[in-house]
Design a protein around this nucleic acid. Sequence first.
DNA 1: TTGTTTGTTCACCAAAAAATGAACCAAATA
DNA 2: TATTTGGTTCATTTTTTGGTGAACAAACAA
Lengths: 155, 155
Amino acid sequence: MSSSLSESQKDLIERIGVYHEQQGMQPLMGRILGLLLILDDAEATFEDIIEHLNVSKSAVSTALNVMQIQNKVAYRTKPGERKRYFYLNMGNWENDIEKELEEIARVGVFVQEALALRSNRKPDFNNYLKNLCQFTEFFKRQIPKLFKEFQKSKS
Amino acid sequence: MSSSLSESQKDLIERIGVYHEQQGMQPLMGRILGLLLILDDAEATFEDIIEHLNVSKSAVSTALNVMQIQNKVAYRTKPGERKRYFYLNMGNWENDIEKELEEIARVGVFVQEALALRSNRKPDFNNYLKNLCQFTEFFKRQIPKLFKEFQKSKS
DNA sequence: TTGTTTGTTCACCAAAAAATGAACCAAATA
DNA sequence: TATTTGGTTCATTTTTTGGTGAACAAACAA
């Protein structure tokens, strides 16, 4: 396997794993992301992953397949070798973050639907909900601007 | 119990439940949120919740206690009655959303840590990570502005 | 052809999460 | 004092999740 990991590296991988777990990702997927982020080569074979993370082939296979479908990782091969070298698909963190932000804003849709079904027995409550909807709509509009502003701030 | 729910109301409650479940909340908690959002009175007793959602007393008790600690719901009482009327604590959705946004930005911290441990064997990859860090920092700074801008946009 | 390497599939298992039901308690009422 | 009401606690059960290992498949090598 490629070089062994230091304690601080292992620790960080675990913490990255827990973070992603809390964000709704499967435990192993989170740790694979961590591993690929920490490895100096920024890539790992199937076997590397198994050995570094102490998990079974099948678990890695399943996790990697899901992660490939989700465009989180990809792999390349090297001439003469059959092994796959998996690496983080860093091409679109902007897209990932954008999706997460949109997911947060999705409450607004539900509140909207709720409002449509509500009588006006509780006008204050309804107004409160309307305000929340307005915010989520405002927020959704701001998302693309956010990325543009960031690009601008860099130049 | 208070009036019975229509099919579309029940359906919306379930969908709100699933949404919150996916955001990491316990299933029952999500449905309670949905119920309190849909009920015309915007409040429900312990018993109402049990009957509308078809769950046990103990499950409701546990869920409500957690939700009160998390400041998601509160209850009031009515003179002469011992029942508690639970309602959504709508005082701070801004705060909730703010916290969720900060949680998203937390990846940046991990990436920062990863960078500190990485050699510069893969400068492109490292630069990519640096860029991501810069974005999360930028993003964190924008969060308070977002709410201010929203307030401004309303006046 | 036979064997080896690399990865997949699937039936099974262990641990964790969530819900239940019964016993319990505290406050109000008769 | 005994009873009812409203809610809590906890041991137990059910459901879901994540992972394992063995059998299998595909690709290449001898």
